[in-house]
Amino acid sequence: MAAAPARILIVENDLTIAENLYAFLELKGFLPDAAYGGHAAVALLGDQHFDAMVLDIGLPGMDGYAVLQALQRRKQTIPVLMLTARSQLEDKLAAFSLGAQDYLVKPFALEELEARLRVLLGRARGASKDETLEFAGIEYDIGSASVTLYGQPLHLTHKSRAILEVFMRHPAELVSRRTLELALWADGSPSPEALRSQIHLLRKALLQRNFDGIQTVPGLGWKLVASARQP
């Protein structure tokens, strides 16, 4: 059974980064919310429950350290992943001393941020079950990154699995080029042929197991549908 979607608070004053994070985490099955300053973050944390927080340090008015201090004062615990351009050891030690559990320096890969978040959430939830996605004979265990097709193991590259995950979270729905680029590349702007090549690799791997369910919608994107060649 799929785990309940985790609520993630993104605290980031750079609107482009915040919007990209929001869209990416939503694609990955999380329930994100955003605050663009420390005071807004503390207010949201006081009114609502979140399973984890992605927190910048350089925030206007009330910085990330002050947010952590506010949580300490009211004895509120939440897994915190610091996301900041500050790479000095003293900055990291200060964040950890105030209760942060992880620290990621910009620029960063969206996939690494997701992986770190899942580790934090797994620790917080204890021995929770990993999420498994299922569609048309495909099963994808997110925790172990294992994929089976018609009950047999399917060996995919990291990016092929990332594309497949997006498709399986939106079965039979149109998935745009921009959506997939955001899931695969942190800056969302690879070479024009990069995504097409990755789609080809995934389609080839599936066709080798008699699955032809990736449909191209010219000029719009792709869909994952049930295969007409299922054995």
Rank of each mutant, 00 (worst) to 15 (best):
A136W: 04
S160M: 05
L113E: 04
E131T: 15
R125I: 03
A145W: 06
A115P: 00
L164E: 06
L121S: 09
L164G: 05
E111D: 05
T132D: 06
E165N: 11
K159L: 13
T157A: 13
E165P: 02
F135H: 12
V166P: 08
L154Q: 06
L120S: 05
E112W: 00
A145K: 14
H155I: 13
L156H: 10
D141H: 13
S144E: 15
S160K: 05
D130R: 01
E112K: 01
G143T: 09
S144Y: 14
E111F: 00
T157F: 02
H158P: 02
Y150D: 14
S160E: 14
K159I: 04
F167H: 04
L113G: 00
L156R: 09
L133A: 11
E165G: 07
T148D: 09
V147M: 07
V147P: 07
L156W: 09
L154D: 08
E111T: 02
H158C: 02
L121W: 10
S160A: 15
L120D: 03
L120V: 06
G137L: 07
V147G: 11
T132I: 15
A124T: 01
L154W: 02
G151P: 12
L113C: 08
R125D: 14
R118D: 14
R118Y: 03
I142Q: 11
R118E: 15
L154K: 07
S146I: 04
G151Q: 10
L120R: 04
I142G: 03
E131C: 11
L121G: 06
R125K: 12
L164Y: 07
H155D: 08
D130M: 00
G122Y: 01
G126D: 02
R118G: 05
Q152N: 13
K159R: 14
E114Q: 09
S128E: 15
L164C: 10
R118P: 03
G122L: 01
S144L: 15
S160D: 10
E114K: 04
A127N: 12
G143C: 12
L120Q: 07
F135R: 05
V166K: 03
L149R: 06
R125E: 15
M168D: 08
S146P: 00
E165W: 00
L154G: 08
L154Y: 06
A127P: 05
